[in-house]
Design a binder for these strands. Structure first.
Lengths: 242, 242
DNA sequence: TAGATTGTTAATCGATTAACAATC
DNA sequence: TAGATTGTTAATCGATTAACAATC
């Protein structure tokens, strides 16, 4: 199984081939389309790794993921030559590189603000752990919640947010507060030096400038898309009957 | 305010201009890019309506939404001529048309399977109500949950799913069950005639064929994108220091 | 070496933007 | 009517796919 598997580095620290593209001075400016696909590669590679698969070709991966092999090779080459002609890709190595690119294990610290059903769902999931993000604080204002523990973290009052941010490195905040307070809380976060917001509030945050990274989750939009397709489907069926 | 506002139909039932494009026989096959933008129009128009705005031009809307006016006109024209030269768009009418397109108020019925933190968060939100979707049943297997009520619906045992589906029209299911059972539950749903799945499980459902509509929500992918951008940002900052 | 598969360039396709005639 | 703004075509841009030389 491990035959002719010589020249491929299996260690993350060793990145000779990649340097050409990864070099910061280049400003390669990876396209948004590619960035959006990276997490999917991460998921599939993690699964392959779990199954103990050692190597994979772009062709194999393409039929697994229902995309073209060409796209896979193109995407990966934005970040460096991770494969080997005639061989394919070493799953372990490729996974490590994708993790590196996505910042898995970069050790980012996050806090969750708003410990309602959704906040709890996120905190209790293994989502952050799987992606190397550390949740280091939970905040709310409800007296019923303050002091209660979720995932071995106890909920703090929002009044202690400033103090907390001064004492800890907070890279981003998960925002699951009600709409009416969303903007105020977000502004306060920025004031305290938080650089990113994972925004579940549905409120548009006007931080495009300011070097703040905002990732919006609009679950309602996803629901709408489903609705649209179900209705379009129904109309098609009705049309065919005529 | 209501001046020269004559020829624009303000009622949903009256759709003379649109027919050319809406005609089912055309198979206009709206592009995925357009479909993904529709929910955003829906949100902005709802807000404008709430603010009491009567009319809006593509130019105004474009600066509000940070997209080009050209794109807005192009997008809307996939479904019909909803505007009027020299005037713009009637907010009320346009909102009604977008709702019609997206199937808001089509009266779709849904059930939620898996009443954990996430399931509860969804059920208790106003998301479905706002979009004209009726949640008609909640299902779980935990004895602690069966019989409990959320949003005036009591949780039923999964054993009663078949009976329920036979007695009610279930258009789609919101799937928030743990990964290990996801595929089994999904298969059962399809067997019972459910045509759509809003899939939060992270498990890929192999229903591309079969006329089943699956809308996947991968929250982890969104988190990864945020992570990537935060790390890329950090690298940029480091590079600039050199 | 021969076979396989990458990295990469060129061709195609689709989506966005610009422009303007139609028209309210 | 004159001004405004749409609907729509044409031009541009970006992203995907195909093809193949490089090479392991």
């Amino acid at each position: 199984m491990n035959h002719d598997f010589t020249n491929i580095p299996s260690d993350t620290n060793n990145t000779p081939v990649a340097d050409l593209h990864t070099e910061e001075t280049d400003r390669p400016s990876v396209s948004p389309a590619v960035i959006k696909r990276l997490p999917r590669y991460f998921r599939y590679l993690r699964e392959l790794l779990r199954e103990g698969k050692m190597r994979i070709s772009s062709g194999e991966l393409s039929s697994l993921m229902n995309v073209t092999a060409s796209q896979i090779r193109q995407d990966l080459n934005c970040f460096g030559g991770f494969g080997q002609q005639g061989y394919g890709y070493n799953v372990n190595y490729l996974y490590a590189k994708i993790c590196e690119i996505l910042g898995v294990g970069a050790g980012l610290n996050a806090i969750v603000i708003g410990i309602g059903d959704l906040g709890r769902a996120l905190v209790r999931s293994s989502m952050f752990e799987k992606r190397g993000v550390d949740i280091i604080g939970l905040f709310d204002i409800s007296p019923d919640l303050i002091g209660k523990s979720f995932d071995s973290l106890s909920v703090r009052h929002m009044d202690t947010l400033q103090e907390f941010c001064e004492q800890h490195q907070v890279d981003f905040a998960v925002l699951t507060v009600p709409k009416p307070v969303a903007l105020d809380v977000a502004n306060e976060l920025i004031r305290l030096g938080v650089r990113g917001v994972w925004n579940f509030t549905g409120v548009e945050l006007p931080f495009e400038d300011k070097n703040i990274i905002v990732e919006n989750v609009h679950l309602g939009d996803s629901l709408m898309t489903l609705n649209y397709k179900l209705c379009a489907d129904r109309k098609d069926a009705a049309a065919q009957q005529d």
